[in-house]
Design a protein around this nucleic acid. Sequence first.
DNA 1: CTGAAAGCGCTTACAG
DNA 2: CTGAAAGCGCTTACAG
Lengths: 366, 366
Amino acid sequence: MKQRQSRRQRNAPTISDVAREAGVSPMTVSRVINGERNVRERTRAEVNRAIEVLGYTPNRAARSLASADQIIIGLLYSNPSAAYLSELLVGGLEQASRHNIQLVVEKCDSEKDAESVAMRLVAGGVEGILIPPPLSDQPRMLNLLHSSDTPAVAIASECVRENIASVSIDDYRAAYEMTRHIIDLGHRRIGFITGDDNQVASGRRLAGYRDALAEAGLSHGEELIAEGRFTYRSGLDAAQKLFELDSPPTAVFASNDDMAAATVAVAHRRGLDVPTDLTVCGFDDTALATTIWPELTTIHQPIIEMARAAVDLLAERVRARRDEEELESRHQLLDFTLARRQSDAPPPDEKRRTEQRTRVVAEKLG
Amino acid sequence: MKQRQSRRQRNAPTISDVAREAGVSPMTVSRVINGERNVRERTRAEVNRAIEVLGYTPNRAARSLASADQIIIGLLYSNPSAAYLSELLVGGLEQASRHNIQLVVEKCDSEKDAESVAMRLVAGGVEGILIPPPLSDQPRMLNLLHSSDTPAVAIASECVRENIASVSIDDYRAAYEMTRHIIDLGHRRIGFITGDDNQVASGRRLAGYRDALAEAGLSHGEELIAEGRFTYRSGLDAAQKLFELDSPPTAVFASNDDMAAATVAVAHRRGLDVPTDLTVCGFDDTALATTIWPELTTIHQPIIEMARAAVDLLAERVRARRDEEELESRHQLLDFTLARRQSDAPPPDEKRRTEQRTRVVAEKLG
DNA sequence: CTGAAAGCGCTTACAG
DNA sequence: CTGAAAGCGCTTACAG
């Protein structure tokens, strides 16, 4: 009879080696490893000695296969924010591997697609789902997760659902502080470009801006608030509108970096220097913020940490679900920072502003 | 007889479920999953359908337990290209998990840091390293990997080292084809903004531009070639220089999107419409290309596929190394595509161009 | 307190 | 090109 060739490649000692060395069964070794108490003290000591002698380390793959304690969670993303995604993945993967959690990353194309991909993931054994923006702001998506009772954590969204947790920064507070920062520089007429109506963050950022102004006694009408939709294109139009005001702002705070960049472009076309003639601030701290010139003062979100926190939160929920515990939804807020760069400055003095306005008018006439 | 209670906790589909669904043996499913080629096309299709239907994901623990051949590789990146990174991760992770390879993603801050992180990875059991740009263009990094005899694959770099493989697109060919595209639109004076001197791709892109012009009998002096360094800022200066020529170009081909975007900005400041008055093309197809207005015509690199290919190549090299085989370095070229968008058009007719030039001069004098 | 048996989900080695 | 069998290293469920 030919001997079947062994399949072992590494020759690390196994639980059976330890058992043989200690003169017990593998089961007993397993008990000792796992700290179960129903093992006679002498037996335990003997096993520990054998472990020591052989330099035994349990095989992780075998453990999680046998115990079925591995958690698989999914990260479902749609295309828009690629720069965002990279940080998300870095943070998420790190935390997942640390806790022996398998993170399945899936892309979907449309909103419709997202729902079917989510259901396929769940059908495929994924026990919880991580939803980054912009998916985390789609009511249908959240409703689906909610009604299918799938543990889920929404990132950078505070959409409240009973059984969905979230991790985000305090958009209201961040917008408030940015506005304060601009006020402290000496600005009195501060324009604002809003974000997309159907993202929750948009409203919060606007509210932060409003409250900071009100608190400083600078409330003015609605003319300094221009509507945007988070796209560069919409920022172009919104900035245009602000500059055409009879008394244009000396600073513009846009609800994201794309629109802030668009504002800088429009300012340049009109011959305004940033920040000497105009302060422009953004939100999000995407790659664009440090690509263009001048680099944008903006709000930085700790995306990597948010991803880590989201993984932890989700793992906790998945375990709770396995144990059939009820878990209330939890909304975790992480700290943002105000990244100050080259696009802000005190307002131009009155003389320079008059010169400018004259120049612009002259060009129009010419 | 009492039925023994099942131990399965999650009810994820297994390889047997897929096999049953597809009407084959688990072995065949395993072959399909692992991309072995000795499976009939029809069988393979059927298995893939079953996988899709059930939403099957292989259990990692079981795989690595059974195969005992788990490979750990590292992806070492430095900060610059975040949008790039996300695609890299998506492609790399997917392929890695497919082949049961553990991908350790590590970030480093500086070039110096990169070297120590690389060595730490290797000391910690990582058997091969993936190097994306801009690290893949740093001679010291490559030399280190080379001399420490660590299997490595450089992405988007064709730096030749004996034992380092690479995956990239044909930068020369891509630049050649973009230049041809601009010529075919009718342009005769085509400006070029170069990339950073110390990246290999820069030279190749320039050569592609040069050869396309020469072939079309359009070679002119060096005046239409402006030096850039891949940054937005350097693009601003380079574009400025091109526009100040006595006979400025009607089209500008920048060596990357950042500099193309800068060119658009400068054109706008000078009152030139893109693409009516000026065609601007970029390279890389980063997020910026579709953020700004007009969206840029540019060269798209299949980054996700490059990452996949890089993982495969690296795994092959790690295995070869385990078996103590010699493997010569391999340089794999993938296909790029020319993404045509809104920033290119035929050259303005002569009349309009004269008007423009007059306007610009008038502004200067005024 | 201890152990024999079965099984986790996959792959290797072999046979057709 | 396909499959039956054995085994990876551990744990669960059960029986003493």
